[in-house]
């Protein structure tokens, strides 16, 4: 599974989107556009990324720009997975 698939699948599960994530593209807006994405859901998403991908998110990286779109979140995950 590539980084974007991981992100989309985690969004689907964490936010319980009933399959809506299947139509997500890199341009899909997240923060402010998805009503399910409240602060508890963002936290669940960060924790999910850490646990599933074995990455560590620094506290100061919790930034609105990262969670703006599916593409920005995927870029962030890729930068974390890069050797």
């Amino acid at each position: 599974m590539d980084a974007m698939q991981q992100v989309v699948s985690l969004l689907e599960q964490t936010l319980d989107l009933n399959g809506r994530a299947a139509s997500f593209t890199a341009d899909t807006q997240l923060l402010g556009a998805l009503p399910e994405l409240n602060s508890m859901a963002v936290l669940a998403l960060i924790t999910g990324l850490e646990e599933r991908l074995g990455i560590m998110v620094d506290d100061d990286e919790i930034d609105g720009r990262v969670f703006a779109t599916v593409g920005s979140l995927t870029d962030f995950v890729r930068s974390k997975l890069a050797p």
């Binding site: 923060l31 402010g32 409240n38 602060s39 508890m40 963002v42 936290l43 506290d59 919790i62 609105g64």
Partner: peptide, 8 residues
């Protein structure tokens, strides 16, 4: 949770 809330 506080950090994510402030991020919004």
């Amino acid at each position: 949770l506080r950090a994510t809330a402030e991020m919004m």
